[in-house]
């Protein structure tokens, strides 16, 4: 017990929004993450880059507690993950809309579910809740599609719906898993503008990407993963923002990042 408490407080940094220390994840008998340490400080926009299967999605899922860590520990806003309850401070944008879509749902219904973390269990909707949902819809430019079923939207618009859902909770930290994957240029620009506004208001961003596109100029710090380990930590690598990176068929993980 005492030992865990010491581990919890180790390297405690009050400015750190996300801290992962020596994270190891075994996934289906394979080591998906191999001793990764990272720290995102308040107001920072950090990108986790890497090829498919490099462990970058596993990393954010481990940070959120969706995938158990085999070793290492996570702190969110300075609190150990297993004791963290203040989920309204975090807005999570998964790769795509959940699979459970047998019944239609409107864009506004999906976005409104992002407000639940703030609303509390079985509490009625307040005016503030409604305004937050409308603001989130406006922030991603989907106000005029609010009453449409999400299934009728393009991939990029569905991605924007998920971002609006995260924004509706008025979080301090946004965690986005591949927000640019399979998204048209217009939606990528809209995403860049939304994130710019979010960080200008003091928000912190942690995003996973295969390609940064128009986001590249906003990234303060980038981590490149290959086979579950960090191979680059610092400024956005030049390759990540130019065309060569955008084409996965040249095996970015091997030839470009200099591993194996």
């Amino acid at each position: 017990m005492n030992e865990t408490r010491m581990a919890d407080n180790e390297d405690h940094d009050p400015a750190a929004v996300v801290e992962l220390h020596d994270g190891v994840v075994n996934y289906a008998g394979r080591r998906a993450l191999n001793g990764v340490t990272l720290r995102v400080t308040r107001g920072q926009t950090m990108a986790i880059l890497g090829a498919n299967g490099s462990g970058k999605s596993t990393l954010v899922r481990a940070v959120l507690g969706l995938v158990p860590l085999t070793r290492g520990h996570v702190h969110l806003f300075g609190i150990p993950l297993r004791r963290f309850r203040d989920w309204k401070r975090i807005g999570y944008v998964p790769q795509r809309l959940g699979a459970g879509s047998g019944v239609p749902a409107t864009v506004r219904e999906v976005v409104a579910s992002g407000r639940l973390a703030r609303r509390g269990l079985f509490r009625p909707v307040t005016g503030a809740d409604r305004r937050a949902v409308e603001r989130a819809l406006a922030a991603v430019g989907l106000t005029d599609r609010a009453r449409d079923p999400v299934a009728t939207l393009s991939g990029g618009q569905q991605q924007r719906t998920l971002i609006a859902r995260a924004l509706a909770g008025e979080p301090e930290l946004l965690i986005l898993d591949e927000p640019t994957a399979g998204v048209d240029a217009v939606s990528q620009e809209a995403l860049a503008a939304t994130l710019r506004q979010f960080t200008a208001d003091g928000g912190t961003v942690l995003l996973v990407a295969h390609e940064l596109g128009p986001l590249a100029s906003q990234i303060d710090r980038a981590i490149v993963l290959a086979h579950g380990t960090v191979v680059h930590d610092g400024a956005v690598p030049v390759l990540a923002s130019n065309d060569a990176y955008l084409h996965p068929h040249i095996h970015a993980d091997r030839s470009l990042w200099g591993t194996s």
Binding site: L66, S113, L116, A117
Partner: peptide, 8 residues
């Protein structure tokens, strides 16, 4: 999964 991250 999203509901879990939302703390529900």
């Amino acid at each position: 999964e999203y509901a879990r991250v939302a703390g529900l």
